[in-house]
Design a protein around this nucleic acid. Structure first.
Length: 480
RNA sequence: GGCCCUAUCGUCUAGCGGUUUAGGACACCGCCCUCUCACGGCGGCGGCAGGGGUUCGAAUCCCCUUAGGGCUACCA
């Protein structure tokens, strides 16, 4: 049997980290089984769904490196892949349910239902549908129709056991009596989630439904639908959902929860992807894994089912690791927007320093940062004049010993046109002995004069990158 | 309220009845490297939610309690 998985986000917002997590697990599973990934938009919530979000979600998935074989933007054999375009399928399925006597028309209004629900809740009774319309006579139906009421369609849930198997967690058995008759089609003719998913998954030949834990309780309803539609159920696998640091469901209250936000903060897609894979699953060996290695090592059956807290710190660590290993040319391209938006680089690329120099700069500074958005802070003295605002820096510059350091440094640089970091290092390290000063006494004032900062890359690298001319200029400023 | 899921260091987790003085990663602390920060190296702190069983033996199996989460929607 061919493995066919789907990722079915609802376009009611940006791609959520939690959705990206299940998308990744689906993707990994499909890729390691030579299966296909289907991307479908679940937009049956007409009020909240927006086409724009659908585009954003596609873009974020691609950014993460999760591609798909059929679905949105690609089309395919079993389309269309947006639920609002699939009305004919739902109507056909509803017809089948009606013919089989699995559903009945319900004329209750939203207000009536909500009142009933509240009343039940207040009395400590289960807030499920009473079944008021379950056994309407022909005459009662005719009366409602005469009033111009449009019916919704409800599934007649049988009593008795509904069993299914979860690939991860084993056997489940729910009692039909506990479920209550659920809505399948709204009065507007738009299907509800449970119905649309099942119809689509059947028609799209989905073999494995890998989704978050929160859908476990919906599964018996869906199993009922599969049976009524005379279809085979797919394999279910419910993975744990993601939590915030307070162990509540991960939400906007916890800060950045969309993939787009992490991208904006300067996280690398491979870092986010790698981190997401580590939530609920652990590799045997080391944890830093490429997409290819993940495909090779990932094992759905070893995914844990206890909910996982999304830990920013570990993500940050991973991002730092990937940053340091990243190609400088690529990083420079990614970093440029941050440098432009902070005014360190002009809008117009023509006015930029050479590509080679920029790459050296980024290649050097990538060792000091955790996210790309931190780059401007370090790049500042290289792309504009140092600020010399820090009190400690000012004090170092004013120290008596600093004067002879500046003098010796200037003398050593005079007449030099270019310096490798190696040469610069040799020169710098000869100074302490020459001046009979401690290394710190020599290096600290130079670093201060050259960058206005107390920390940063190796001094030799700074000197090489700035070039003799600029170094001289900055040091001379402090000579008296 | 009912039903369901979950429970190992602060966090992610390994562990699938004996090989465990419970292993790793992040974070934290200390030391080393070093002009500083970061990286890196070494070391440390820190956990089986509680209570009952089952068993020669339990983090591992069962039950109860507790805690957290989910579903019970004309949200998905």
């Amino acid at each position: 049997m061919q493995v066919r998985v789907r990722f079915a986000p609802s376009p009611t917002g940006l791609l959520h980290i939690g959705n990206a997590h299940t998308a990744l697990f689906n993707w990994l599973f499909a890729r390691q089984h030579g299966g296909r990934v289907i991307l479908r938009a679940e937009d049956t919530d007409v009020q909240r769904s927006q086409l724009g979000y659908e585009k954003d979600i596609c873009e974020d998935l691609r950014w993460l490196g999760l591609d798909w074989d059929e679905g949105l933007e690609l089309g395919g054999e079993f389309g269309p892949y947006r639920q609002s375009l699939r009305q004919a399928f739902y109507e056909e399925a509803l017809k089948k349910l009606r013919q089989g006597g699995y559903v009945y028309p319900c004329y209750c209004s939203v207000e009536e239902l909500e009142a009933e629900r509240q009343a039940n809740l207040a009395q400590g009774k289960p807030p499920r549908y009473s079944g008021r319309c379950r056994n309407l006579s022909e005459r009662e139906i005719a009366a409602f129709e005469a009033q111009g009421r449009k019916p919704a369609w409800r599934f007649r849930v049988p009593e008795g056991q509904i069993a299914f198997r979860d690939l991860l967690r084993g056997e489940f058995a729910f009692q039909g009596a506990e479920l209550g008759d659920f809505l399948v089609v709204r009065p507007t003719g738009v299907p509800t989630y449970n119905f649309a998913v099942v119809v689509d998954d059947i028609q799209m030949r989905i073999s494995h439904v890998i989704r978050a834990d929160e859908h476990l309780s919906n599964t018996p309803r869906q199993v009922l639908l599969y049976r009524a539609l005379d279809a085979q159920t797919p394999q279910f696998a419910h993975v744990a959902m993601l939590l915030g640091p307070d162990r509540q469901k991960l939400s906007k209250r916890h800060g950045a929860v969309s993939v787009a936000e992490y991208r904006a903060q300067g996280y690398l897609p491979e870092a986010l992807l790698n981190y997401l894979a580590l939530l609920g699953w652990t590799p045997k060996g080391q944890e830093m894994l490429s997409k290819e290695e993940l495909i090779e090592q990932f094992d759905l059956t070893h995914v844990g089912f206890s909910p996982a807290v999304f830990d920013q710190e570990k993500l940050r660590w991973l991002n730092g690791q990937y940053l340091r290993r990243a190609d400088d040319a690529r990083l420079t391209a990614l970093a440029a927007p941050y440098l432009v938006s902070t005014g360190l680089l002009p809008e117009d690329e023509v006015a930029w320093p050479s590509e080679a120099w920029l790459q050296k700069l980024v290649g050097l500074l990538k060792h000091n940062i955790i996210t790309l958005s931190q780059l401007p802070l370090w790049a500042q003295p290289f792309l504009s004049e140092p600020k010399y605002e820090d009190k400690k820096i000012v004090k170092i510059l004013q120290e008596a010993d600093s004067q002879q350091v500046f003098k010796a440094f200037s003398a050593a640089l005079a007449g030099t046109s270019q310096l490798s970091s190696q040469k610069a290092g040799d020169m710098l390290h000869s100074l302490p002995e020459q001046l009979a000063l401690g290394t710190g006494k020599v290096f600290r004032p130079l670093r201060a004069a050259l960058t206005g900062q107390g920390k940063g890359p190796e001094l030799a690298e700074i000197v090489a990158l700035l070039g003799p001319e600029k170094c001289l200029e900055r040091v001379e400023k402090f000579r008296r």
